[in-house]
Simulated scan of single mutants.
Amino acid sequence: MASKQGRGEQLVVGTLVADSGTGRVGVLMGRVGPRMQLRPPHGGLEWEAEPDNVEPATTLDELRVKVTEINLRRVRG
């Protein structure tokens, strides 16, 4: 019998991903048991996500991250 894998099961650590459970974008940091550990792209606290809710980030998600980075640089100087 074939095993059923969630969408996030094939992702590699370091991949930019979208968590549909929270609506957030993060970097896959690893796995703890059945859950995935994600961190905001610009640092911060990790959160856990269900593998079925995690998929590679879309081009739009990637653009949002880049705009946030530009805005942070502007604010920080």
Rank of each mutant, 00 (worst) to 15 (best):
G43K: 04
G30M: 08
R73T: 07
D52F: 10
G44Q: 05
A49D: 06
R31Q: 15
V25M: 09
G77I: 05
G14A: 12
D19A: 10
V67N: 07
Q10C: 09
M36S: 00
V32T: 13
V65E: 12
T59Q: 13
G77K: 03
N71S: 14
M36E: 02
V32H: 07
T68G: 08
G44H: 05
G21L: 11
W47A: 04
V32Y: 08
E50F: 12
E62M: 10
M29D: 07
A2E: 10
K66Y: 03
R31A: 15
G77T: 05
R39I: 01
N71G: 13
G23F: 08
R39G: 01
A18V: 14
V13T: 15
A2H: 06
I70A: 13
A57P: 01
L28M: 07
R39S: 08
V75N: 09
G30Y: 07
G14L: 08
E48Y: 07
G33T: 06
T59E: 14
A2T: 11
R39L: 00
S20M: 08
R31E: 15
H42W: 06
G8T: 03
L63T: 13
S20A: 13
E9W: 00
R64P: 01
P40D: 02
R39V: 12
E69W: 06
E50Y: 11
Q10W: 07
K4H: 09
G6V: 03
V32P: 01
L45K: 10
A49C: 12
I70V: 13
R74T: 09
A49T: 09
R35T: 12
P34H: 03
E62D: 13
E50C: 07
L28A: 10
S20E: 04
R35W: 10
Q5N: 10
G77R: 11
S20Y: 04
V25L: 05
G30F: 08
P34W: 00
G8K: 00
D52K: 13
G30V: 08
L60A: 15
R31M: 12
R7G: 06
T15K: 02
A2S: 14
R39F: 00
R73M: 12
L11A: 06
G43V: 09
R7N: 12
G21D: 03
V17W: 00
M36L: 15
N71Y: 06
M1G: 15
L45G: 07
T22H: 02
E50K: 10
V25N: 08
V13N: 13
Q37G: 00
N71F: 11
R24C: 12
G44D: 04
G77F: 03
Q5E: 14
L72Q: 14
T15D: 14
G30W: 07
L72M: 14
W47F: 06
P51C: 11
E46F: 00
Q5L: 11
T15P: 00
G21I: 04
E55S: 15
